[in-house]
């Protein structure tokens, strides 16, 4: 199936010489949730802004549903909805008016029933006659989402949707995103919260200094790059790791009652069997074992560090 968005060799150098994007190539699959992960200033917002038409690319091309974003901007832009990072809303506008404005701006005929449904879905219906400035930050973000969805887009960009949002609202936001995906909308979100990508994304792209370091199916990424930890609990605590175990990458924890082996699941030999054998030979008795996989956060930090 043709990707819904194809980004090819996209570069952006701002007038002040800042190279925000350095030759990015990326396909976004239809109906997926793609998380773009990267530290502040990595180029995530620039990438989104170019696809949405707010920033002009220096070179390279982007197509949405096979049509070029510059020569065919009327088609591509009506496909896309954008929820910006900042809470940019006209302070005196009524909620309903600002959402209807967005719908018309994107060329769709006024449809109060659809707008009401949308506001209901976002728990905004009882606020529709209120001025935007009277709403809380979380509610304002919902209004921005309603505005972005007002013209029934097929692709939704969420730029840092949960920055500065409390835990409960963040969960709500994730629910909204999941429901949208179920209705067939492709979602691209940027975040620097790894847990967010881990929680809801199908695929994760890591951007740093304007370069796309990788794009990978989330589970694949974690499997490919993940480090695992084997925790061996001992019956009797030990003071230090015996000489005979010095060839392993071990840490002593929990006052000497746990030995932790960090191993890479990508390597062909994890040396677990040998370690357990050597522990037994050293005269220690095992109480329990458990393994844990590293989170996206750790993967991310190691990737960005490698880059730097």
């Amino acid at each position: 199936m043709q990707p819904v968005i194809e980004v090819k060799d996209l570069c952006k150098t701002y007038q002040d010489g800042l190279k925000a994007l350095d030759c990015i190539t990326l396909d976004v699959h239809r109906g997926e949730i793609l998380a773009l992960l990267g530290p502040n200033g990595a180029g995530k917002t620039t990438l989104i802004s170019i696809i949405c038409g707010i920033v002009s690319p220096t070179s390279g091309s982007v197509t949405v549903d096979g049509r070029d974003i510059i020569t065919d901007y009327r088609f591509t832009r009506q496909m896309i909805g954008l929820v910006p990072q900042e809470l940019t809303l006209g302070t005196f506008d009524l909620v309903r008016n600002t959402v209807c404005f967005s719908r018309g701006l994107f060329g769709k005929r006024s449809n109060p029933a659809y707008v009401d449904d949308l506001l209901r879905d976002l728990s905004l219906l009882n606020k529709k006659d209120q001025e935007v400035r009277t709403l809380s930050g979380g509610m304002k973000r919902r209004v921005l989402i309603a505005k972005a969805l007002a013209h029934e887009p097929r692709v939704l960009f969420l730029d840092e949707p949960t920055a500065g949002v409390d835990v409960e609202l963040r969960k709500d936001m994730w629910d909204i995103v999941r429901r949208l995906r179920e209705s067939g909308v492709t979602i691209i979100l940027t975040t620097h919260y790894i847990e967010e990508a881990e929680e809801i994304a199908d695929r994760v792209g890591v951007i740093n200094r304007g370069r796309l370091l990788l794009v990978e199916e989330k589970h694949m990424l974690m499997r490919k790059l993940g480090k695992k930890r084997l925790t061996v609990q001992l019956k009797e605590p030990i003071a230090r790791i015996p000489e005979s175990l010095s060839s392993y990458d071990l840490d002593l924890a929990a006052d000497g009652s746990e030995i932790i082996l960090t191993y890479d699941i990508r390597s062909s030999r994890t040396r677990i069997t040998a370690l357990l054998q050597d522990i037994k030979n050293a005269g220690m008795t095992l109480k329990d074992l458990n393994t844990s996989q590293s989170s996206l956060e750790e993967i991310f930090v190691s990737l960005v560090k490698e880059e730097a």
Binding site: C52, G53, I54, Y73, R74, F75, T76, R77, Q78, I80, L82, P84, E86, T88, L89, G90, T91, S102, L105, F106, G107, K147
Partner: peptide, 17 residues
């Protein structure tokens, strides 16, 4: 004013000439 508040993003990203 939309430039000042940032709401201009919407007009720029809309399918309008």
């Amino acid at each position: 004013f939309p430039r000042f508040t940032g709401t201009i993003y919407e007009v720029l990203s809309a399918p309008v000439s």
